[in-house]
Amino acid sequence: MLYAQILNAVMLGCTYSLVAIGFSLFFGVLDTVVFCAGDVAIFSSFSVVFLVQLIGFYNIFFGLFNPVAALLLTVIVAAIFTAILMVLLYQLVIKPFENKSSLMPLLSTIAAGIALRELIGIFFPEGRNPRSFPELLSNERILQELPGISWRNAIIIVATILIVAILYWFINKTKIGLSIQAVSQNREAATMVGINRNLVIYVTFIVGGLILGFGGFLIGSYYAVIRFDLGAGFGLKGFSAAVVGGLGNVYGAIVGSMLIAFAEVFVTAYIPGGTAYASIAAFVLVLAFILFKPEGVLGNKSVEKV
């Protein structure tokens, strides 16, 4: 059972971690919390549902795609949709508050998240009902001797690691990635050495949008049932994970996600009657971190800027 529960926790952590990375990435560059990340990820899940229907339609009439190409195409197009949405959201609800109190983008992105959720509910056909997510990743076991490791679970874990690895390469080895780091470390100094801050912000939102897009796909695949309002829960858990890991630290986000996932799973599994309190356990963990170690697990203890 321990083995199965560890696997459950790792998988749950993976579904949280891409959303959490989104939070951390945006926070690093903008110093503000983009609260609608969870809803953006669920938007991506719905895009996948939409695209699969569309591709199914093309397949019937034109026989155009082989399954793997169709899968990749679907996921990439959904991620691009999500990236476009993210940039739009930046323009509409984050940019107007550039130099104002940082609480305003927090409020406006929460509102944008609700608006997004409600728009899916209203405009997606039967949007308020739960819908099944197409089974794009096979649920067959890879090895009969290894229970729990299906192709899908393996792909989710590998994809998460791969995305993080690409992100690592992008942030540390490319010029624009280094500029993102520079801006998140010191905005004024970065501008002074000639970094185009606007460009950096847009690139961050595109990258973040793509990550959330893949995240939405993985979430949808893992649960196989999605609903318009799931984004609120994932947003909250993702943000909590980012805080536990240290806001602004991308790797911390993964650690935070795993911590929260393990807390939830193990309270459910090993405390009698604990299921009802699993979410509370996660939030208590967050409260403890905020109060006693606000810089998170991996964050740097920053000196208050006066």
Partner: peptide, 16 residues
């Protein structure tokens, strides 16, 4: 059906 949508839009418009 549109209530929460309305609130979120009011919030954004007021803020902006």
């Amino acid at each position: 059906d549109y209530r929460m949508l309305m609130y979120s839009i009011i919030l954004i418009v007021v803020l902006v």
